[in-house]
Measured scan of single mutants.
Amino acid sequence: EQLARLKREFNENRYLTERRRQQLSSELGLNEAQIKIWFQNERA
């Protein structure tokens, strides 16, 4: 579920704002660094 949600977010926007990253962190139970790194890896 977390992965599917991250992929949906990535398809909508390849870059997250700090606020959006905080929201996802709270909703998915991941820390902000994990989300940031995931997005960086997807863009690579």
Rank of each mutant, 00 (worst) to 15 (best):
A33W: 15
S25W: 04
L30K: 02
R14G: 09
S25P: 00
K36P: 01
W38I: 04
L28M: 06
L3N: 05
S26G: 07
I37E: 14
Q40K: 10
E12H: 11
K36A: 15
A33D: 15
A44L: 13
N13R: 04
S25H: 04
L28E: 01
G29C: 00
R21D: 03
L6Y: 01
L3Q: 10
E1V: 07
R19D: 12
Y15S: 06
L24S: 00
R43W: 14
E9A: 13
N31A: 14
N41M: 13
T17E: 04
L16T: 03
R14D: 04
R5T: 07
N41C: 15
Q22A: 12
L28K: 01
Q23A: 11
A44P: 02
G29A: 04
N31D: 15
L30Q: 00
S25K: 05
E1F: 09
I35M: 03
R19N: 14
L28F: 03
Q34K: 08
N31R: 08
R19P: 10
R20M: 12
R14T: 08
R21A: 15
Q40H: 10
A33L: 14
Q40D: 13
E42G: 02
E42K: 03
R20C: 06
L30M: 14
E27M: 09
R20V: 09
E18P: 14
Q22H: 09
A44D: 12
F10T: 02
F10G: 01
A4M: 09
L24N: 00
E1I: 10
K36T: 15
E12T: 09
N31L: 11
Q34T: 14
R21S: 15
L30A: 00
R20P: 01
S26C: 06
R20S: 05
R43N: 14
E32S: 05
Y15W: 12
Q23T: 10
S25I: 11
F10S: 01
E1C: 12
E42H: 06
I37W: 14
I35R: 00
Q23K: 10
E9G: 01
L16G: 02
E32I: 09
G29Y: 01
N41R: 10
E12F: 08
E9Q: 04
R14M: 11
R21N: 08
R21I: 15
E32A: 07
R14A: 12
L16I: 08
F10I: 04
N11K: 13
R14I: 09
R19H: 14
S25N: 01
N11R: 11
Q22M: 08
Q22V: 11
W38M: 04
W38D: 01
N41L: 11
N11D: 13
N11S: 13
K7P: 02
E32K: 06
Q23H: 08
Q40P: 02
L28D: 00
T17M: 03
Q22Y: 06
R8I: 13
R19L: 12
E32V: 12
I37V: 10
L6W: 01
R19K: 14
R20W: 06
L3A: 05
Q22K: 15
R21T: 15
R19W: 07
F10W: 05
